[in-house]
């Protein structure tokens, strides 16, 4: 069952996400973005890791209509090989309501098999606040 965006609270953490970007998945990402594939023959494009971690978040979180992705930060800490097993961690860093909108920020982290971070990031989303009386 998808998580309800409006029911999130600061400090909430999603269950760890097993993630691995195969060479085929990296190739599909590069084909879609149009970036030359030759550049990334022995490493996963770093933004592809972030995109797939965000995709995993979107699979678990039901965004309300009108939600907008308004901010994005990433720090790439080391190159990752295709197929390398990773674990994604996502936590709610901010969830606050102001002037009819909810601002939510999600801290993102990918760790390698040794538990060392290879990517960190933060995504910010703004969505209309839940109307009073609307079902939760």
């Amino acid at each position: 069952m998808a998580l309800d965006f409006h029911s999130l609270a600061r400090g909430d953490a999603l269950p760890p996400i097993a993630l691995s970007v195969s060479a085929e998945e990296a190739a599909a990402y590069l084909d879609a973005t149009g970036e030359p594939a030759e550049r990334w023959e022995d490493a996963v494009p770093p933004l592809a890791q972030g995109a797939l971690l965000l995709g995993a978040l979107m699979e678990q979180l039901a965004l309300p209509p009108g939600a907008l992705h308004t901010g994005q930060e990433f720090a790439f800490l080391r190159a990752v090989a295709p197929g390398e097993p990773l674990e994604g961690r996502i936590a709610v860093a901010q969830h606050s309501e102001r002037r009819g909108s909810v601002i939510a920020a999600f801290d993102l982290e990918l760790r390698d098999a040794d538990g060392e971070p290879v990517l960190r990031g933060r995504s910010t989303v703004i969505a209309p606040a839940r109307e009073e009386g609307a079902p939760s």
């Binding site: 770093p46 907008l68 901010g71 930060e73 790439f76 080391r78 990752v80």
Partner: peptide, 12 residues
Amino acid sequence: RWAESGSLRVRL
């Protein structure tokens, strides 16, 4: 080097 030490911070 971009994959090893790059960083981004943007507003959409």
